[in-house]
Amino acid sequence: MAEHVEAHEHGHEEHHPRLQHHFQDMRTQQHAARLGMWLFLATEILLFGGLFCAYSYYRTLFPEAWKECSKHLNRPFGLLETFDLITSSFTMVLAIHFTRIGNRKLSVLMLLATATMGFGFLGLHGYEYYHEWLEGALPGKYYHFEEVTATGAPMFYAVYFLMTGLHSAHVFIGGVVLLVLTYLTAKGNYDASYDHPLDLGGLYWHLVDLIWIFLFPLLYLV
């Protein structure tokens, strides 16, 4: 095909075993994969965008409830969770870095650390949920938290549980993806010339971190 001929003329590279037939060269393939991932991340941002919209809507309506309820969330825990996710993002970029400079062992270690911190985050958050369950700080009709009686308090907890719940679901999916990537990296699938899945998995993980960076001040530090 014309595209292939052109790719050879430019002498960019020989047929990489991972090159799919319909792409011109590896570079185009990676560009396509990345652009596809960015578009997917855009849909994720908008998915959360709906919840951010609901958040701002009800925060405008019930500012008092937001202030009071936020004080009853576990702030030190929120801080811990934030550090957990930031660090996991850091180990994620390091994992890709080590793959690119050819250190597979450290790369696997970093991926494992990232996944562990991901599931650790879920554990921490599960603990918070458990406490809120005990207190009765629950959404909508389940609300029976005695300490906060401000108008709209159940709405704060509805928004809180939906936002953190959706985020936790993403953390869980990301964690599973990371475990798969760890396995594939350990098997030796990725090296300096081909690390696209690792790259894309990393992008997803950073997005999860990015969402939390906004959730933390919005929910815990009102």
Binding site: W38, L41, A42, T43, I45, L46, G49, C53
Partner: peptide
């Protein structure tokens, strides 16, 4: 552009 537009729409 993708990311900028996503934030713009949020």
């Amino acid at each position: 552009l993708t990311l900028a537009i996503a934030f713009f729409f949020v």
